[in-house]
Amino acid sequence: MAETDHPTGGEPPKGPPGDHMISESKFKKYWRANLNLMGVLLAIWFIVSYGFGILFRDVLDNFSIGGAPLGFWFAQQGAIYVFVILIFVYSAMMHRIEQKFDVDDDEG
């Protein structure tokens, strides 16, 4: 993603002091970055639960983790661990995206 900012000019900032305007193109880039990140994480979300745990579990069950068939393990344990990780990864990466586009809520 390019870091360039497109000042669209025209309108001065409105609202209470401390408010700032961001251009429409910058907003679109920010949103696109968010959607891309979301898409990747939701794909992982789908693969570990619906993929590993349901659709392809027979294939995965040929392997095992400890004493459990792998597909069965994903359906009852693994998917849940990945879900937790996904949310914290999203939270951290999204914060970086927001800071980059100056739309974070660190100041409220």
Binding site: T8, G9, G15, G18, D19, H20, M21, E24, V103, E107
Partner: peptide
């Protein structure tokens, strides 16, 4: 937009 201070400008 998470920030309360940021707004999108619409020329």
């Amino acid at each position: 937009l998470p920030s309360k201070a940021a707004h999108v400008s619409h020329p």
